[in-house]
Every structure is written in structure tokens, then in C-alpha cells.
């Protein structure tokens, strides 16, 4: 049987094991920190490679006259933001202007749009299917929303002080704990599969 990507597999296993052992063996902590610093540098470089790829794809779209305006807008804003932030610093007036008056408003507005989309989605769930789980979901959601604060200026103390805390601190907390433990077990399994070479998500 021919082993696929033996060098990459050996590198992934050895560096991964060194970092993992460094968590539990204090003598290896220095070496682990050094590897983590290298990994941090490589992650930053990988981010730059990603940006380069993004720019390249949109540059090709501009040259091919395919969705030119959108791609040109992306390239221009990317170049301006990158240059201003790098040359003048992230705390400079111009970089802060871009961040506060371009990035933050769009980001917050997208979050606001999400609220409306979620409300519509919840209404659609309620309309389309009346299964037990949908009913549980919708009833819980309504109880939580009613108890989230005053309704048209009227306080509903039974909802805010009894039902809401009970759902959050007893029913949801227990299940959330189960979900978190499940996610942690899944993460460990995936990590171990990479460290024993069963999964190799790093190219052939």
C-alpha cells in the first residue's frame, strides 16, 4: 500500500503531538510556545494568501468584464483600506473613519436584517409544519420573547422572573451542557483522527 503524502503526514503528526504534549508536560512548554509562534506567523501569511487569491479572482473578473462594477468596488476598497491601515496605522484618523463609517454601519445593518429574516423564518416554520418539535420550539421562543422585557410598556413579572429564568437556567442549560460535551467529544475525535493520520486535510 502506497502512503499518500508521507512527508506532510509526518509533519502534521509530529508537530501536532509536540504541541499536545507541551500542554501536559511543562518541560516542553518553551518548545511548544516556539511552534505556536511559527504557526501564528504562518496563519497570518495564510490570511494574506487568501486576500491575494480574492484580489486575483476579482481582478480576473474585471479584466473579463464580468460583474465589473462589483469586483472593481471590492478591489478599490480593499486596496484603500489595506494601504491606509498599514501606512498610517489602525488607530489613525483615516483608518478609524473607514472602520466607523463604512465597516461598522454595514455590519450592524446586516445584523439588523438578520433579525427580520429570523422572524420571517420562525413564522414560516410555524405556518408550514405543526410537528411536536416545531411547536415546542415556537412556544418556547414566544415565552422567552414575551419575558425578555416590558411588552408595550407593561411589565410581566411572572414571565420575566419565573418562566424565563426557568427555561434558561434549568431546561436549556442542561441540554446546552449536553451539546457542549458532544461538540467537545466531536472536536477531540476529529483532532485525534488528524494526529494519527486517518484524516489528511492538507493536500496530497
Amino acid at each position: 500500500m502506497k502512503l499518500r503524502a508521507p512527508i506532510s503526514t509526518a509533519v502534521a503528526i509530529s508537530f501536532g503531538l509536540l504541541v499536545l504534549l507541551g500542554i501536559f508536560i511543562p518541560d516542553l512548554a518553551d518548545f511548544r510556545n516556539r511552534i505556536l509562534n511559527w504557526a501564528m506567523l504562518l496563519a497570518a501569511l495564510a490570511l494574506l494568501l487568501g486576500l491575494f487569491n480574492l484580489a486575483q479572482v476579482h481582478w480576473q473578473r474585471v479584466r473579463g468584464r464580468e460583474a465589473t462594477v462589483y469586483s472593481a468596488a471590492l478591489l478599490v476598497t480593499m486596496a484603500i483600506t489595506f494601504a491606509v491601515t498599514l501606512l498610517q496605522g489602525s488607530d489613525s484618523a483615516n483608518a478609524e473613519w473607514i472602520f466607523n463609517y463604512v465597516v461598522v454601519p454595514i455590519e450592524t445593518s446586516l445584523m439588523a436584517v438578520l433579525a427580520i429574516s429570523l422572524t420571517l423564518a420562525a413564522a414560516r416554520v410555524f405556518q408550514q409544519r405543526t410537528e411536536l418539535m416545531n411547536m415546542v420550539f415556537i412556544v418556547t421562543l414566544l415565552l422567552l420573547l414575551v419575558g425578555a422585557g416590558p411588552l408595550f410598556g407593561v411589565e410581566l413579572p411572572y414571565f420575566t422572573r419565573v418562566i424565563n429564568p426557568y427555561i434558561n437556567n434549568v431546561l436549556a442549560l442542561g441540554a446546552m451542557r449536553g451539546l457542549l460535551i458532544g461538540v467537545a467529544l466531536g472536536t477531540i475525535t476529529t483532532g485525534v483522527r488528524i494526529l494519527i493520520g486517518a484524516d489528511r486535510p492538507y493536500g496530497a
Partner: peptide, 27 residues
């Protein structure tokens, strides 16, 4: 590819350590 493999290996080790120390044991 070996450098990408290093990043994946380190990431996997950190994920395991984080899942054990940060989630599993406290939960």
C-alpha cells in the same frame, strides 16, 4: 503542503487541548 500540514497538525492539537481543558473538564 508540509507547511499547511504543520498548521493543520498544530490546529488539531490546540483543538484537542482546548476541548479537554476548556470545555470537557469544566462542563
Amino acid at each position: 503542503n508540509p507547511v499547511t500540514a504543520m498548521l493543520v497538525g498544530v490546529g488539531a492539537a490546540l483543538a484537542i487541548g482546548g476541548a479537554i481543558q476548556g470545555t470537557l473538564l469544566p462542563q
